[in-house]
């Protein structure tokens, strides 16, 4: 994938914005141009949260992604809101623990990952978002495992470095999930 124009969406509190930051940082570490634009305002407070992330070799024009080629959905309303905007050939990754929708489009690649369930099962509560990043890496190859390792070390605060291995484990679970 040359340019990634992603929309990540779900509930506030699921780490949607953080997921965007991790993806953006990986792009930065690889020396690419990146942008991250959150939805902001009242919807931050308990409602839906979404953000646009762009990664490109060239400077990014509009950071607001209207027609994503990557869409990660962590709840039903967000899925409904963005699924039709995905460009043909785009990749859609769904947390199937939380999104029960059937996809009717056949011009896109859909990956259903029960990320929330996988996180619970593996003692990684709260890392469903990171599991989905793993799946995104597997699908798009937007960054290497080495880059992701560096990204996680960079983005996890100094005081919480003990959480790095768990995040890496979450990435691996996502990468290896066949579904």
């Amino acid at each position: 994938m040359n340019d990634m124009n992603a929309v990540l969406a779900g509930f506030g509190g699921q780490g949607i914005l953080f997921m965007g930051k991790v993806i953006s940082y990986a792009g930065l570490i690889d020396g690419k141009e990146v942008s991250w634009l959150p939805s902001y305002g009242p919807e931050m407070r308990g409602g839906t949260a979404n953000c646009s992330v762009c990664i490109s070799a060239d400077p990014i024009c509009s950071p607001l992604v209207i027609t994503p080629n990557v869409f990660v959905a962590m709840n039903g309303p967000s899925f409904d809101k963005f699924i039709d905007a995905v460009v043909p050939g785009g990749i859609v990754i769904i947390d199937s623990t939380l999104v029960d929708r059937e996809v009717t489009r056949n011009d896109i690649t859909v990956c259903k990952v029960p990320a929330t369930e996988l996180a619970e099962k593996n003692g990684l509560k709260g890392l469903a978002n990171i599991i989905l990043i793993g799946k995104l890496m597997e699908q798009t190859g937007f960054c290497t495992m080495e880059t992701m390792q560096k990204t996680i070390e960079k983005i996890v605060p100094a005081k919480k470095q003990h959480l790095v291995p768990k995040n890496v484990e979450a990435i691996e679970i996502g990468m290896n999930y066949a579904g």
């Binding site: 141009e33 942008s35 991250w36 634009l37 902001y40 990014i60 950071p63």
Partner: peptide, 8 residues
């Protein structure tokens, strides 16, 4: 938009 977005 500029205030809220992150860029390198």
């Amino acid at each position: 938009m500029l205030g809220q977005m992150m860029e390198p």
